[in-house]
């Protein structure tokens, strides 16, 4: 694993080599898988360093109204896990791809595979299994998985499968994550730590929350890549977040809004990615200027 100091994963390399990193999210199948392919390519061209693709689940409890609506459009369009993996098979982006989905989708891919495989058997096993999903994801070229309803305490089976197939399992760190749990989660970071900027659900906001600054200050002693999401929508937010010590910004709802409202979503997405990436770089430059003379602005952790 990465923190042992061996080779970087695709995701870690992407963040390190393109620092500060822009991570973009859209929902696969919104409004169709064909269009998602175009949009992902546009985000890639616009300077995304990692791209998260949402595999839609009917009960997205971590999502605000914007992504909920995108998920509904994707489900109405008939998006399935198999269609999703076919899309990933087809994509040839420079940015590594991650899937963001809810745990039940991962579990059922296994059980439906198992029941398909044993159709003739009288008693197919209906116990869900995470491995077939991870195996198929690795085969399609995914680099990582994010599961908003899977806390570290429940993650052992998926973590083991991800280790076996060489995928990163990205954990979220919330404003409420503290003390011993924070230490434990930070010691298991794989890919990057997804820093949730504020309590609540996903959704574009007009400003960067104070909680973001608090979180980044709290996390500064951990020497792992940190990317901030939940509410980021503009280049200026990206600048502020990177300046506050993040290694990357994660943007989703603001992109979904463009898909839903723009006449030429691909062009709009590419332009938006450029704006966000420029903002992030500006934040990093400001940081570099400030830290001249200071020694070791970010101290490595005790490890």
């Amino acid at each position: 694993m990465s923190q042992e100091g061996t080779t970087d994963s695709d995701i870690e390399a992407a963040i390190r080599e393109n620092h500060p990193a822009l991570i973009t999210y859209i929902t696969a199948g919104d409004p169709s898988l064909e269009e998602t392919k175009e949009y992902v390519e546009a985000l890639d061209r616009g300077g995304s360093d990692l791209i998260e693709l949402g595999l839609p689940f009917s009960e997205p409890i971590a999502e605000g109204p914007t992504i909920q609506a995108a998920i509904n459009r994707a489900l109405d369009a008939g998006t399935t896990p198999e269609g999703f993996f076919d899309l990933v098979d087809d994509l040839e982006t420079e940015a590594p791809l991650l899937v963001m989905t809810y745990y039940n989708m991962i579990l059922q891919y296994g059980s439906s595979e198992a029941s398909r495989a044993s159709e003739s058997d009288a008693e197919p096993s209906n116990k869900p299994d995470v491995r077939p999903f991870v195996e198929r994801g690795a085969e399609a070229g995914l680099s990582g998985i994010i599961v908003p309803d899977l806390p570290a305490e429940e993650a052992d089976p998926l973590r083991e499968a991800c280790d076996d197939y060489g995928l990163d399992l990205v954990f979220i760190v919330a404003p409420t994550t503290e003390g011993e749990r924070l230490d434990r989660i930070m010691s298991q970071v794989s890919g990057f730590a997804y820093v949730q900027a504020r309590l609540g659900t996903t959704g574009a906001r007009a400003d960067v929350s104070g909680a973001t600054h608090d979180s980044l200050a709290r996390l500064s002693e951990y020497d792992v890549p940190k990317a901030v999401g939940f509410g980021v929508s503009e280049g200026d937010h990206a600048a502020e977040i990177i300046e506050a010590g993040a290694d990357g910004v994660i943007v989703g709802s603001a992109l979904i809004d463009l898909i839903a409202s723009s006449d030429d979503p691909a062009a709009a997405l590419e332009a938006k990615a450029e704006e966000l990436k420029r903002g992030a770089i500006r934040g990093a430059d400001d940081n570099a200027v400030e830290s001249v003379g200071e020694t070791a602005a970010t101290s490595p952790s005790e490890r």
Binding site: E59, N104, Q108
Partner: peptide
Amino acid sequence: TDGVLHGAMTKLLQSEEGQI
């Protein structure tokens, strides 16, 4: 069939793909 909804692994009415 077994799956995860609203915080727990339990029996669910769900599609083969995992939609509730």
